[in-house]
Design a protein around this nucleic acid. Structure first.
Lengths: 190, 190
DNA sequence: TAACTTACTTCAAATTTTGAAGTAAACCTG
DNA sequence: CAGGTTTACTTCAAAATTTGAAGTAAGTTA
């Protein structure tokens, strides 16, 4: 029975509209000293996918709000994500593409807007004139810095102690695994 | 092929927020048998957010592909997510809204398309005639079942053993926390 | 040097998301 | 119980995002 549960998809309707942390007894247990959930609840990839979609939406609105607060009108959440993806390094469009699993034309479009807004510089590489090198301008860096500033508060709330850090990291790694599995499936079929 | 790629090295970007995240040695450690990170690397919420965006994109294309395979032309990934959110219960639009943190008009729009396509039924509630009750039709349930079928393979790949399950669950819970924190921030400001 | 590949851009169209403005039913409140 | 308010949703128009096909120009290879 357990084996079956482990490896078949099992529909578990966990408190989906998660406003209520009380529905996650494991979290409570964890706070009481147990590092890891005692009863394992099966989480299917659909549940995770839905969660990811919701969280993504939330973050996007957060970015939008932050941008409004900063009085930035010409950068939407999607473009902001591109700026954050660029970070403080100089890279090519191709590298940026890999960083976000974007479609080429999409990034091209965003880069155009960001360049028009003066947030990035594009320079054709010496080595390979096809390859555009992208880098944040002063203005772009400033915006990123402001966003990071605003983000600090969230980091403090989310990473209160070692357990939090560990969990954030596990979440990150697990998502990375999803990224690989789903990505490869998309390319090569399952 | 997939097995190999599953455990491939991570390419990680450089420092964010002053923390140098150049390497994730724990992932290497995991390969060697230690399932939980020994040294905690700081994962900022921006990194997580970017990861979430990427994973979300990947899942959406997966859904699109699956839908194409199934020969379903009138349901995009976004609508599919709505179908999955409805699941096997009957609920009101409001409940559905909470389930996905959608904007009202958005859900309304999707429900219209799904109703037109014959995937859902809308019945006005007896108790409250303003409230529309939503439920999957036979056709909608069939599509969900097909998707779940296709999803089984991913669950098997992703949840190989107890450690995987534990990590998936931690990821789920951590994302839920992000959902709450970011959601509250959006409503009430930090 | 002709054909091919890579790295990216452009464009047009589709899809998704937003926000403002409805509508109708339910709920007060005097 | 009339009048105003709130709730639960819908509609509409516009914006933002994303896709895919078709470019272009620079490198690579045969």
């Amino acid at each position: 029975m357990i084996q079956k549960l482990l490896h078949e998809e099992v529909e578990v309707e966990t408190s989906i509209d998660g406003y209520d942390a009380a529905n996650f007894p494991e979290i409570t247990a964890e706070k009481q000293g147990h590092r890891h959930p005692v009863h394992t609840v099966i989480v299917t990839h659909f549940e995770l996918a839905r969660m990811i979609e919701r969280v993504n939406r939330r973050f996007a609105s957060l970015l939008r709000t932050e941008m409004t607060k900063l009085g930035v009108e010409d950068v939407g959440p999607a473009q902001a994500m591109v700026l954050l993806a660029i970070g403080d390094v100089e890279l090519s469009v191709g590298e940026l593409l890999d960083r976000g699993h974007y479609v080429g034309s999409n990034i091209s479009y965003y880069l155009k807007q960001l360049a028009d807004g003066g947030y990035i510089d594009r320079v054709a590489s010496q080595r390979d004139k096809r390859s555009a090198r992208i880098r944040l301008t002063e203005k772009g860096e400033q915006l990123c810095a402001n966003l990071r500033d605003a983000g600090g508060a969230y980091n403090r709330i989310l990473a209160r102690d070692d357990d939090d850090l560990r969990n954030l990291e596990i979440a990150f790694q697990t998502l990375h695994r999803l990224e690989l599995v789903w990505g490869n499936a998309a390319r090569y079929g399952i």
